[in-house]
Design a binder for these strands. Structure first.
Lengths: 342, 342
DNA sequence: CTCCCACGCTGAACCGGTTAAGCGAACAGC
DNA sequence: GCTGTTCGCTTAACCGGTTCAGCGTGGGAG
């Protein structure tokens, strides 16, 4: 009864029950091969002994799971530093994975080559059962790579451009329309969007929808690109607000950039919202802490994380990959938007 | 060759080289037991075949590395959502681990029991080579648990209260003194600190240092506790600013709470900095994006992450555990602090 | 020439599970 | 009463590595 007891194995259970190793395995996995009576007895002993399966050993048998999902986040460190989106996504994924005793292996890289290497290594070493892919790019080479590795995967993004991989997508276009109509109704006719990097698929989708929607309400709808960091948004906003016919409304592709934009407006003496309206794409606590509070397109990112984790669990289980749609973002009007007051 | 080649095992290498399984193992692990010539040949074949070790199999036999470090973050989801600290730490850890092909296994839980379970399971199944412990509490039971599990570990926090575990600590006390002297020099005599949860060790250390420092300059130095979220700080700040003799300076234990405090001041018509000075403990891009920009105690959290990852790598390698000190936080004066103007 | 040891390698056990094959007993069908 | 089947379990191989004991060989020392 020492302090450093070896943890029980199925062999220990077998000895205690007076049966063979195999019988214990059948019993514990709910498979036929043992009588109901013996099964009960074995389960009881396992419980008494505090037995827990060794995923490591299980993974070794053909077709076994290793009990881990991989995710690579390929963003420059400074971009990741402040963005709530990522942390919220992580939280959602974790809560879902925890329920099935699955670990998340996370890798943060700052170049695409390292990301590809991670997938290759994970597949070769059987370190993960599947991967979650985020930040889908246009013609993303990772899709073919992961398909080639025969690694179960779910893409957060799309639809489209994900090959045969199932994806979890959002109807960004309708949220874009909602935002544009809302701003148009407030009287705005020069609306500029400070978007994320052009290579992201969802950036392009939003841009197309934005152009269509602004044209639809007879407004000028330009898009400039930044990289999700506050600094990049600060530069872009300074330039935009210095224009002769500066926009009267700005839509930022994330909350950090919107925050930066608000700061620049303040610094340049442009009042929000009487002279400039600001909309943030992702909502987070930040948007409500700042004054004026930021009107935002709120998505339940935590729920997204849960969903995508559920999907990868299914895919790992061998289910047919079926793409799903998340709840679309909803506009949360707050203090940073309003009618123009000359 | 076929599209779906089974990945090579050491047995395949052994066959190709005409030697035994054991010899291949010795050769690949750089251990004595094979001639230099044979080793070269085996390594060449392994390279040609594209062999990669199966961590799963390796973990099964006693004494092998699995190439993964575990970290549990036990904070309520909403608290984690916005805080840059965590993401920056993660980034630092990752950059360091990536250089040694080590994976990070991350678990986000919201109760201490689940955290303990994670350590136990990881240790029992040999899923990780070591763990990084954050958010050290007073009389933290995790220390004894992890020591008992004989799991290599490094604590981010301390010094003190970490038993025999090595830790990476910061001299918070001197930063506290710097902040208090700075505020006192500006004329502040009622300084209140909105701290993190009282159960964290670093919270207590800062509180003690704060009481001493404020007493030293003849100022009133109260501490109230919040939970690092914007909401909790909003409530606390509203209460504090409504007091008859309200504080003239507030020190918040993280950037998100400082942001919330700034919002409340604005909402209550208290001008920052002419009527109220605000200091944020951790610095981040947020502090510079907001107006007025927030005076902050800047620590290089990314560097902390790198350091702690380096330390756990050492500990896993069997090196003697030696605690280290990180660079202390430096005060970054910005727009949110200034002399009182009646 | 002999003895001993170091070297380089082999064979087999082992880690903790899963699973196919086999086997005796009970039981049903004809 | 004999055959065939099903049930309940055992045996043993297997997953992909690591590691220890053993063994033949060659070389140096005496």
């Amino acid at each position: 009864m020492g302090s450093l007891m070896r943890r029980p194995t199925i062999m220990d259970i077998a000895r205690a029950a007076g049966v063979s190793k195999g019988a214990v395995s059948y019993a514990l996995n709910g498979r036929p091969g043992v009588s109901e009576e013996t099964r009960e007895r074995i389960l009881g002993i396992a419980r008494d002994l505090g037995w827990a399966p060794s995923t490591t050993a299980r993974a070794l048998s053909p077709g076994g799971r290793v009990g881990a999902i991989g995710m690579v986040v390929d963003r420059p460190a400074h971009a990741l530093g402040v963005e709530p989106f990522f942390t919220q996504l992580l939280t959602g994924i974790e809560t879902e994975l925890a329920s099935s005793d699955t670990d998340l292996i996370l890798r943060v890289t700052d170049d695409a080559g390292a990301e590809a290497d991670a997938y290759r290594r994970w597949a070769a070493e059987r370190r993960v059962d599947g991967v979650i892919m985020v930040d889908l790019r246009i013609d993303d080479p990772r899709v073919a790579l992961v398909e080639g590795l025969a690694l179960p995967a779910v893409v957060l993004g799309g639809p489209g451009g994900t090959g045969a991989l199932p994806c979890l997508y959002t109807d960004d276009a309708s949220s874009v329309r909602e935002v544009v109509r809302y701003l148009a109704a407030l009287g705005h006719r020069r609306i500029t969007r400070v978007a994320g990097p052009a290579e992201f698929l969802h950036t392009r989708d939003r841009t197309l929808a934005f152009e269509e929607a602004t044209a639809g309400v007879g407004a000028a709808g330009d898009t400039v690109h930044a990289d999700y960091t506050g600094e990049s948004a600060t530069r872009a906003t300074r330039r935009l607000l210095a224009l002769a016919d500066r926009p009267t409304a700005l839509v930022f592709d994330n909350d950090v950039m919107a925050l930066a934009g608000l700061g620049v407006a303040h610094e340049m003496g442009v009042d929000v919202p009487s002279q400039l309206s600001i909309v943030a794409w992702d909502d987070s606590a930040l948007c409500q802490l700042v004054r004026p509070s930021l009107t935002a397109v709120a998505r339940d990112v935590v729920a997204c994380g849960r969903q995508v984790a559920g999907m990868i669990a299914e895919a790992v289980g061998g289910a047919a990959p079926r793409s799903r749609e998340t709840a679309r973002g909803e506009l949360q009007p707050r203090g940073s938007t309003g009618p123009l007051e000359p």
